[in-house]
C-alpha cells in the first residue's frame, strides 16, 4: 500500500525543527510500524539523507524505549501496544500519517523523534525503591502476601516507563507513571516502612520537574501500553496527602 508520512525532523535540541513529508510505495501490511520506518530510513541513506532518529530496542513492547505520536495518539490508535507492536495492517492504502515526538517541557527533544526522559529516572532516584541491603532479606516465604494484593501490585509494576502517559496528557502530567510506582510498592507489605517517605519524595521530585497537574482527563490510562489504571494516581494522592499534612513522624525512642 501507499502511505504519506509527515514526520517531525529536528537536528538537535537547538534546532527549530519542521515536518518533512515522505511518500512510501509498497508498504507491506505485515510490517511493524518501526520496520516501515526502517525501510524509509534505508531509502533515505541511499539518497544521501540522514535517516529519521527514533528510539527503539527490544521491539516486543517491554523495554519502553520506543514511542511517538501516530496521528495524534501515543503509540498509535491500537490499545494496549507500544508503537513497535503496531502493525501496518491497521492502516489503509493512501493514508496520511503524522508522526510527532512526545511533546512535553519535561521531555526535551534530542533529535527527530528522540526525547530525553531522564526526568523519570530522577523521580525514581528520589524514592522508587525499597531499601534492602543485599543478603539481609528473610526467607522469601516469611511474609505471605494475598494473591489479590500481589496481582494488584503487579498491575502497576508492569509500567514500562515509556512516557506515553505524559505525552497524551493534555496537561503533560506524569501522574500515571509516578502513581504506578507508588501503588506497586505501597500495595506490598515489604513496601510499608518507606511508604510515606516514598510518596513524599517521589511527588516532590515529580513537582521539581516540568510536568503538569492532573485534571483527571484519563487520556494516560487510555494510551498506556500496559493499560495501567488511574487508581494508582488515587493511591498516590492519598499517600502523599497523608504524609505531607502529617509531617515526618516525630522521633521516638528514649534519649540516651
Amino acid at each position: 500500500m501507499k502511505l504519506t508520512l509527515h514526520v517531525w525532523r529536528q537536528r538537535n535540541p537547538a534546532d527549530a525543527g519542521a515536518f518533512a513529508t515522505y511518500e512510501l510505495e509498497d508498504v507491506s501490511t505485515h510490517m511493524s510500524f518501526l520496520e516501515m520506518l526502517d525501510v524509509l530510513n534505508q531509502d533515505l541513506i541511499a539518497k544521501g539523507e540522514e535517516p529519521i532518529a527514533f528510539e527503539h530496542d527490544c521491539r516486543e513492547g517491554i523495554c519502553g524505549s520506543c514511542g511517538f505520536m501516530v496521528n495524534g495518539v501515543a503509540h498509535g490508535e491500537q490499545p494496549g501496544v507500544t508503537v513497535c507492536q503496531l502493525h501496518m495492517r491497521h492502516f489503509k492504502d493512501g493514508d496520511e500519517v503524522t508522526i510527532e515526538p512526545w511533546r512535553a517541557k519535561a521531555f526535551p527533544i534530542i533529535k527527530d523523534l528522540v526525547v530525553d526522559r531522564s526526568a523519570f529516572d530522577r523521580i525514581m532516584h528520589a524514592g522508587g525503591f525499597i531499601t534492602v541491603r543485599t543478603g539481609s532479606a528473610p526467607d522469601a516465604n516469611a511474609i505471605p502476601i494475598t494473591t489479590e494484593n500481589v496481582e494488584h501490585a503487579m498491575d502497576f509494576a508492569e509500567c514500562i516507563g515509556c512516557g506515553a502517559c505524559v505525552a497524551s496528557c493534555p496537561n503533560g502530567a506524569a501522574m500515571l507513571f509516578v502513581g504506578a510506582k507508588i501503588a506497586h510498592l505501597g500495595l506490598l507489605p515489604q513496601g510499608q516502612p518507606e511508604r510515606a517517605a516514598r510518596a513524599l519524595r517521589m511527588v516532590e521530585a515529580m513537582e521539581r520537574e516540568a510536568f503538569g497537574a492532573c485534571s483527571n482527563f484519563r487520556a494516560c490510562e487510555a494510551v498506556c501500553p500496559k493499560e495501567i489504571s488511574i487508581s494508582g494516581i488515587a493511591r498516590m494522592n492519598k499517600d502523599f496527602r497523608r504524609v505531607a499534612l502529617a509531617g515526618p513522624a516525630p522521633a521516638r525512642g528514649k534519649r540516651r
Binding site: F19, G72, V73, T98, R103, N171, F211, G212, R218, A219
Partner: peptide, 16 residues
C-alpha cells in the same frame, strides 16, 4: 499545566 507543554502537537487526539 500549560507550561508543561510549551510546543503544541500538530495533531493531538488523546482518546477517552
Amino acid at each position: 499545566s500549560r507550561a508543561a507543554r510549551p510546543v503544541r502537537y500538530r495533531v493531538f487526539r488523546p482518546p477517552a
